[in-house]
Design a protein around this nucleic acid. Structure first.
Lengths: 200, 200, 200, 200
DNA sequence: GCATAACCGAGACGGTACGTCCTGTCTTTTA
DNA sequence: TAAAAGACAGGACGTACCGTCTCGGTTATGC
């Protein structure tokens, strides 16, 4: 049995079904532990123990620490912008705040640096993790097209670059401030530059 | 003997002096190996072996893998902008290209994700690595103040946010493209947004 | 359901009857595999797979690896001496050759050392395996009594010791020669000593 | 560093020397544990723990459980016959008792079945273990030649078969009696048969 | 000139985590 | 009920790395 990246169904099939409580217990244990000890000090044996199960059950579900932690950290993918009204400055500030909130989540914050390290040189893992954020790019493309259509944004604004700017600044800002969070002022000042960069 | 973060001189002192060729050989070996196998698969024993020396000599010089690789990767700190004339668009494009060039260096690219992981939760290491980039923030502050003074930049542009936007977008852009580099068009499109965000 | 040591019938009973072809397939697979990979490397999952069935069916029939292999190896219990005429030297040589033939069987040879190991500290298993050889002691007692009666054997020959000498020498001789077999000369020379030890 | 079968010296060499107390502690722990839990339940991690060291140190010294236990059990090789006077019956009885004493040693008794299993199919290990008993065959050859020379033994007695008979009967006798020992009567009765088999 | 201090190589040390394997049991669907 | 499939707990395996240490032996300086 090759482990599925996530514990998805694989047809009804025969055999004893996996106990879904074990899935949940492992994810919960991984989330707790990664916050407590950090990604690199996170041992899969410790996760299994806290989840009240064994390494065997864990490896049956996830092929690596990265896949497990990735799923534990991003159980709910970050949403870009929920309310899409026509206010460029407000929307960008909301996106910025959303990115800040996603990355500031304790589990994400503890897991992200390690995940980044494991992703490097593992294109497959990178792709799987990144597809979770694919929606963000899609939403941004619609938003930019809409803003241009309304005459609020310059015609040559590249939406993919915009995602990279917002996400990258948040990522780097978080890394530069171990211990502390990104406050409202930070969001304001960063969104301000981007807003002027987008507006017509 | 506590090892010095880098192999700086510590007075004449007595005793046999360190062989500087070993310093160089270790740094070279570390740079080569981190590119070949990646940060997490980099073993200090392997570095010592390729350098033709031993772990003992290595640990005498650097206290940890992170410190060693950090020094191997950033032997020359990245310069922000060399020619500082009064062209906002040109300057920002040059800074963007400079960041791109720094992060695209094979050794940096191979080492950075792992360094980020080791930095998390190690504020001391973070500080030491970050001080290498302190000059960037300083230069940016001067550049912004100058541009504002010339009436080319808006008065409320925050230079620190600007550094985070440029560096973060470059970092994230690199991470999203394992294998490929950031081309001129990428630099152009990203710098374009920032430029409009800065200009008055 | 406790499994029976061997797959004996347990009355007609209710429910679906066991498929006897599975019994045979498992025993054949166990015999083949123990020769190929040795006792300690023999996994019950592999036996089940080669037999075209599953561990469930296997464990329903035999409670442990030792019981299964024991039955696979000693499907036919070794006979002591088939023709019982009154020739001490000839009979002992025949017994010696019989022991040699039993232990030289490839399956027995591959299985025996592991079985010995599993028997140690498991008196119940030891008893079950040993009762398969109980007939040998019985036959030997008759044979010795008969030989003494005919005046061919000394009166104080202990038949149980005789069995241990013959079996033990064969066992040890086999162990000392991994790869090769015990030839006719070996049988001759060993039987010679015992014969003189028995004869009046 | 390939582990040496036994922790023999390998020249003066460089590097930190092995701590001989660790060798001793491991052997002692292995001897104790094999008696307590049996060979198959003996885990190398448990041996290391009881010895107050780690698996690493253990694997540095012995390549396998068999090699370690073999050395722990046969720290002193069994001597064949110490007093070699010219009494065939007495000498053989002494040899028999010596074999009995060797195999009855608690450590040997606990270790032997498992060792036998591991030896099977590992000719190299078999050879290494057997060479420890090579002296026995040598001594027996001298003893037989001497006895023949004195006219006490028949000329065609094969000394190697004699070793196999004595050792084999003891081995098998021990295996057939889990829990109990081989008593003086057993030695007497078995030696009696062999003595008559040898004497002229 | 010779002691001292720090270097160098080699490699063992305690410790920890890894990912795999196997055993014997249990739980499910299907026959 | 049995059969097939496969998950489950538990635990050993042998390997790899880390960062420290203990050696014997080698340079430099500095008294």
């Amino acid at each position: 049995m090759k482990p599925e990246a996530s514990s998805v169904d694989k047809g009804p099939g025969a055999g004893r079904p996996r106990d879904p409580r074990i899935d949940a217990a492992i994810l919960r244990a991984a989330a707790e532990l990664v916050v407590e000890v950090g990604y690199s000090n996170l041992s899969l044996a410790a996760v299994a123990e806290r989840a009240g199960t064994t390494k065997t059950a864990l490896y049956r579900r996830w092929p690596s620490k990265a896949e497990l932690v990735h799923e534990a950290a991003f159980a709910v993918p970050p949403s870009a912008v929920t309310a899409p009204p026509g206010d460029v400055a407000g929307d960008l500030r909301a996106m910025m705040a959303g990115a800040r909130d996603s990355f500031t989540n304790p589990v994400v914050r503890a897991a992200l640096p390690g995940l980044i390290a494991d992703m490097a040189g593992n294109a497959e893992l990178t792709a799987r993790i990144m597809e979770r954020f694919a929606g963000l790019f899609e939403v941004m493309r619609y938003w930019v097209a809409d803003s241009i259509g309304r005459g609020d944004a310059r015609a040559d604004v590249d939406p993919d670059r915009l995602v990279e700017l917002i996400g990258g600044a948040t990522l780097l800002g978080m890394m530069l401030r171990p211990g502390e969070d990104l406050d409202g002022d930070w969001v304001e000042r960063t969104a301000d530059i981007i807003t002027h960069g987008v507006m017509v």
